[in-house]
Design a protein around this nucleic acid. Sequence first.
DNA 1: CCATTTCGTCAACACGGTTGACTGTCTGAG
DNA 2: CTCAGACAGTCAACCGTGTTGACGAAATGG
Lengths: 159, 159
Amino acid sequence: METTAPYVAKLEAEKSASVAQLLMQCARLWNGRGLAAMAARTGIPVREAHTRLFPHIDLAGTRATAIAERAGISKQAVGRLLEDLEGWDIVERLPDPADGRAQIVRWSAAGRRGLLEGLALLQAQEAEIRERLGAAELEALRRLLLDLREILRDTCDPV
Amino acid sequence: METTAPYVAKLEAEKSASVAQLLMQCARLWNGRGLAAMAARTGIPVREAHTRLFPHIDLAGTRATAIAERAGISKQAVGRLLEDLEGWDIVERLPDPADGRAQIVRWSAAGRRGLLEGLALLQAQEAEIRERLGAAELEALRRLLLDLREILRDTCDPV
DNA sequence: CCATTTCGTCAACACGGTTGACTGTCTGAG
DNA sequence: CTCAGACAGTCAACCGTGTTGACGAAATGG
């Protein structure tokens, strides 16, 4: 395609060098891949927003508010996502016996099964990529990303 | 925080090993950093959605539809973003003399200035990160991401 | 006992994307 | 030359994911 903009052409040598863009592209591709595989296997249209809740739902059950805190989003947003998960029989919401205001969010039996399947699936995908990219390379990438995250965290966000 | 969910603990050894998550986190941090710097310097609340248009606006001017195609989003979405950019005097929309239906989207004088400033700013940020992470490391990261993108592209998305 | 905090929900909004319907212009076949 | 069809851009409606603010009900502590 000859239609590339001039200033882009100027940057062409280092165009795909925009590490920021590469990061975003890879992240989206990898993530989308996982969700697609999940949808294909289970038929449940879990979206990325739901998956970000998963690490914060304790096997013993967790309060909705606690999930919101840990996930770093508002309890209202969590509430809506939990509605979906409950509808898909991935999660149950029980009244908290210790606090009449609160709910305990718990994995359902199906949810626990799905969770394990999902984790296995993600590991399989990572293994596939490892095979193609090379084990050493993937490990190097992981290490670089960890370092990068550290740097980005304490040089830009003052939180 | 002792509240980590059990299955997360199980994965703790390789927790931050979820390369997919690391990618997303780094991408968000880096990106947010750029936008924040831009907003701080110019006061213009450019958002990520706008910036994704920039590489596709040719210095000689580009049709709105062409921008949409190149950016991979609908022309309606592009139209709304261009409204913002025009309002901020970053871009001008002129009738295309060769086609009464079409518009030519062109950088305004202020837009060209801002663009150069922005590019310089991003380069400065990348330089700062290069200094912290190491030049060789950043280059290695870039190369790995390029390879990874290639792999992700032709093993998952059949488009 | 009562003021205050906390839990979860409802309602409204912002943003970034979509699709469908529409107007107006261009273009090519007859 | 004309006219059917393709194309450019807009308007309106919708979805998904997040946000705030207001609220009722339950818990808590002086």
